[in-house]
Amino acid sequence: MTAPPFPLDADTGKARLADLTALLHACVEAGASVNFVNPFTRQEAEAYWRGQVLGAVASGLRDLFAVERGGRIVGSVQLDRDMPPNGRHRAAVTKLLVHPDARRQGLATALMDALEARALQQGRTLLTLDTRTGDPAARLYRARGYRAVGEIPGYCRDPFDRGLDPTTILYRQLTG
C-alpha cells in the first residue's frame, strides 16, 4: 500500500537521504531528463540533495514532498518559492520524480495534488515548470491544466549524452 504524499523538512530529508539518493539515481539511470547526464553516480545524487535541496528546504525557500511504499520513498516533487519581490505570487515545480518500478500508479498525480495545495496555502497562484519536449510527464501536466507557452530547441543534454533535446515551458494558474 502506498501512503499519501507528505512534506519533508530538512531534518527528515537528511534522515531519508539514502531513499532520496536512490530515487534520483534510479530515475536518471532510466532516462529522466532532470538536469543530470549518465553515467550518474549515487554520490552525485546525494550531493544534489545535500547541496541544492535540503538547505533551501531548511531556509524556507523550497518545499519537498515525498511518497513512500513499503517504507521507502518512491516519489518526490519540489516547490521552489525562491522568487524576486515582484514574483511572490508564483513558484516553480521542479524534479517530479517517480521510481521506475512505481510508475503508472497515480503517484505523480498525488504528488502534484499535494504541491498545488501547498502553493495555494502560501498564496502562490501561478506555477511554472519545464519538461523535455515529448516526455510522458508533459501529458500529466497538460491533463492537470498546465498550458505550454513555447518550446526551446537544444535546451538540455540528453540523459545518455546523445545530443541536445528541446524543452517545453508550461504554466498553470491556480485558484482556491
Rank of each mutant, 00 (worst) to 15 (best):
T2S: 15
G70Q: 14
S76E: 06
R62M: 14
T109L: 13
P166N: 06
V149A: 08
T125P: 00
R81Q: 12
R104F: 06
F160R: 09
G71V: 13
D9I: 02
L126P: 00
D19Y: 11
C27L: 02
D113R: 04
Y141N: 02
L140V: 13
I73P: 02
T168C: 05
P84V: 10
P4Y: 07
G145P: 00
G134D: 00
R72F: 14
A58I: 02
R88Y: 12
A10N: 05
M83K: 11
F160P: 01
A137L: 06
G134I: 09
E68T: 07
Y171E: 10
D63R: 11
P4A: 08
A22D: 13
I73N: 03
V98D: 05
L96D: 03
A102E: 15
A137W: 01
G154M: 14
A108L: 05
T21L: 04
V37A: 07
R72C: 14
R172D: 03
A32H: 01
G87H: 04
I152Q: 14
A114C: 05
L107V: 12
V93I: 13
V28H: 00
G51T: 11
S76W: 01
Y48H: 10
I169M: 12
D11M: 10
C156R: 00
Y48T: 06
A114F: 01
V37P: 01
V28E: 00
S59A: 14
Q121A: 15
A117V: 11
V37D: 01
Q78I: 04
F40V: 03
T94Q: 12
G87S: 05
P153W: 11
V149D: 13
R81W: 04
E151F: 10
V74N: 06
Y171F: 15
P153C: 09
A26F: 14
D11P: 05
G87D: 00
D165S: 10
E29Q: 12
F36V: 02
I169T: 08
R42T: 08
V149N: 07
V74P: 03
L8E: 03
Y48C: 08
H99Y: 13
S59K: 11
L140G: 05
Y146H: 08
H89N: 08
Q105C: 15
A58W: 03
P100L: 09
V149M: 12
R50F: 12
A114S: 09
D19C: 14
R144C: 07
D9S: 07
D101G: 13
R147A: 11
H99I: 08
A102P: 06
L115D: 00
E68S: 09
A3G: 15
L129A: 05
A22K: 03
